[in-house]
Structures are given as structure tokens and as C-alpha cells.
Nucleic acid binder design. Structure first.
Lengths: 213, 213
DNA sequence: ATCCCTGTAGTCAAACTTGACTAGCAGGTC
DNA sequence: GACCTGCTAGTCAAGTTTGACTACAGGGAT
């Protein structure tokens, strides 16, 4: 699963009602273009697709005063909200070795009740443990690990990164259990979108590091 | 960049001449269906596309004795070999936060001379360092890290996984510099494909761990 | 003889992603 | 006052990925 649907649903939901360009700006504000496939084409495609599937409700609107083509505004439907929560839970729970889905989910995790967040993260840790065990067992031939040659390094990489992922997850669980952050039903939610007209403070000077793909 | 082209080029090259189903079996033997998007459709598509681009040479062949439709066999062209090496170098050098490309590259790393492999891995370490620095700088607002709320956990995740990736890479460099494995020009290369008719010893009892995407 | 299952080899439509492109308006500038 | 740049908002074709499907052969069961 790619992160784009979760990101787009989350962005539209935070606004209540948003058009594509707004979503695009939020994702840039979040830095999502750096760690996910959130490019204009994908965003507009996701919006249209989810509108077709009934997860979003589309409203045609007059062109903005600032010029440009007429816009389409979207709202999350009840069905869309369910899908959002399902995607969010899945993203937290399942270990899929890609950081984009998890990054998006961490950004929205406070939409869940604190206990549920902790429970899902613990499921994640357990999933990582099982995966690690399966991998080490599968890639350990009878003739000893040396018979794999350099191929053993692939397993080594996976195990290393599974251990690291588990460690990070345990740290997060500890912080949440220790009372950090404000979760659903605990008061004023964290506001993470740009208001209409507000300028992205990170817009220039984007890191764009050794992002040499 | 996805790993599929590197995997397919590498598999065809090891055989000298191979048809799609053989490539498919090799990738399954390597476990690539577990950690990359190596599904039948993608493999056949990559073969056709690369043939169209002159990276592979296609030969129509009679149907096999074992039934099924007529097969197409492929060979890597000179241009394809260059592309293969370019993809391999890029995959080792660049930190793209996805393990599939790196896993594939580690499987083929012994196709390079030992010194080059080490040099590329050191470039990788340097790239990770730069990325880590850019991320921590970008996501540290003036009002202190606390103003980010739970969003800071995303950065935390990235930094954690960058550090873990660097550590694994340093370990690999040390082992290679210490003389481990057999690299290009150092003797009999490692054989990692299934001979025609040979059965995949891992075929059943595939790990298929908590692979819940 | 017919049926069903497994293995071989691959095709196809639908969905998704990518990167380049369009088009209107505002403001500066030479 | 013609031109150029930047911002707003989005489209589009080409390429890629997915998951389901086809078609043929051999072998065992009914």
C-alpha cells in the first residue's frame, strides 16, 4: 500500500473542505514530497479516484480570485472517514519495510485514542519479531550460514533494520505511555495544516539532501 | 528507482540466456517476491520494455516440451550490461530509504571489483550522514523541538533509521575490507541461479511472515 | 473416458505514478 | 506597453504495477 491515500484523506479531513492545490501545499509543508510519492499527478489522481469510490465528495467551485483554472473542493464522507481510520490503523500495525506509510501514520497517530495507539504499536513490535524469526530461519541453510556467501549479507541487512525498527517503536510506546502528546479526546488537537493563504515557512530552503534516486 | 530492472538484468545475465519464467523462478528463489515488487506482470513487462530499449535481445523459441505457450528467451546486450552496472553502482551508492533496491544490489555486489564496492559503500555512508544532517536542521524550529509536538517523532524515526543504515553499511565495509567473499577477478564467482529443471529448495515453506501490507 | 489438479509460460485491463505541460492573472521592469 | 517571471490550479501521455485470468500438457482419481 502506498501512503498517498492516507496522506490525502488526512489532509482533506483536517481542512474540512479542501481543493487539490491546498492538499498539495500541506503535503509539501509536511515534507511529504521528500519521503513519499506525493507528486501533483498522484495527488489529483487520488482525489478523483477516491471521489469516484465515494470516499470523498466533490464540489465544483468558481475559479479563485488569484487566477488559474476552476477548482474542485473535496470533503471526506462517512465512508471516507472509515477508510481513513482503517488505513491509519493498518499503517501503524503492519511492518512493511517502507518508511513512507509509517511516517504518514505517525503524523496522524494522535487521531486515535492513546490506548489504541499503544496497542497498535505493540502489535507492530510483535510483527517485527515474527518477521525477524521467519527470515533468520528461512535463510539459514543446513550447511551453515557460510554456504550462503555474500547473500547472507542481505539477511543481515533485514535483521539489522528489523531490530532498529523495533527499537524505535519501543521508544515511541514508552513516550506515549509516559503521557507525551495530546491524543483523541484529550483536549485541543494539534493543528498541522496551512490556513488558506498562509505561507509555508519551510517552502524554500527545502533540505533536498543526497536524494539521488 | 525500483529494483525490478536491476533484478531482471542480473538474473538474465547470470543465465547467459533466459526466458521470463526462469527469471521469475530465480527471483522467487532469491526471496525477491518478499522484499520487492517482483510479480509476474512486472517481470514480463520489464523484459519487454528493456528489449524495446535495446538492453536485452529477444529470441522467439518453440514451446517447451512441458506444455505452455511459446517462450521468448532474452540475452543481455552490451548496452544492457552497461545499464546493469550503472544501476548496480547507483543502488549501492545512493541512500533512498527503500530496502528493495539495496537488497538487490547486495546480491550482485560481487560483480564489482572489491575496491570499487568499498568506495561505493563509503559514498553511501557519506550520503546518509548528509541526509541526517539536512533532516535534523530542517525539522528543528526556532521555538525548540517541543513546538513540533508528535510530528517530531517522524524526524526521530528517520534519524534512527539513518543511523541504523549507516551502522550496517560500516559493518559490511569492514567485512569486505577484511577479505570476506569473492569479488570480480578474484576467482570462481558465486553461482546464484537455478539450473534448468533444478527445483527451488525453498519453494514451499516460504517464510511469508507478518507480511501484512 | 472424464474430471480435476499441478506445473509451465505468459497476457491483459485497470489502477497508479511520473514528469512535462497548459493557462490565467498579478506585478515588476526596461 | 510589451515582456518576463512567479503563483495558482490543474491536465495529460507515457510508463509501471497489480491481480486476475488464459491456455496447454501430464498424471491421478473416479
Amino acid at each position: 500500500m502506498s501512503a498517498i491515500r492516507l496522506l490525502v484523506l488526512g489532509a482533506v479531513r483536517m481542512h474540512g473542505r479542501a481543493h487539490g492545490y491546498q492538499v498539495r501545499n500541506d503535503l509539501e509543508y509536511w515534507g511529504a514530497h521528500e519521503w513519499s510519492n506525493a507528486k501533483p499527478g498522484s495527488i489529483y489522481h487520488a482525489l478523483k479516484q477516491m471521489a469516484k469510490q465515494g470516499l470523498l465528495l466533490a464540489h465544483e467551485t468558481a475559479p479563485s480570485t488569484a487566477g488559474g483554472p476552476p477548482r474542485t473542493e473535496y470533503e471526506v464522507t462517512d465512508e471516507g472517514l472509515e477508510e481513513y481510520r482503517a488505513l491509519l490503523r493498518d499503517a501503524i500495525r503492519s511492518y512493511d519495510r517502507n518508511m513512507d506509510v509509517l511516517s504518514a501514520a505517525v503524523g496522524f497517530i494522535v487521531d486515535l485514542p492513546r490506548e489504541e495507539a499503544v496497542a497498535l504499536l505493540k502489535e507492530r513490535i510483535e510483527g517485527i519479531r515474527e518477521w525477524r524469526e521467519a527470515v533468520t530461519e528461512y535463510y539459514t541453510p543446513e550447511e551453515g550460514p557460510e554456504s550462503l556467501g555474500h547473500i547472507g549479507e542481505i539477511m543481515n541487512l533485514w535483521v539489522h533494520s528489523a531490530d532498529s525498527g523495533a527499537e524505535w517503536t519501543r521508544g515511541l510506546v514508552a513516550r506515549i505511555e509516559g503521557g507525551a502528546y495530546t491524543f483523541a479526546g484529550e483536549g485541543d488537537p494539534f493543528v498541522g495544516v496551512l490556513a488558506d493563504g498562509e505561507v509555508n515557512p519551510y517552502a524554500t530552503g527545502v533540505p533536498d539532501p543526497g536524494d539521488d534516486e
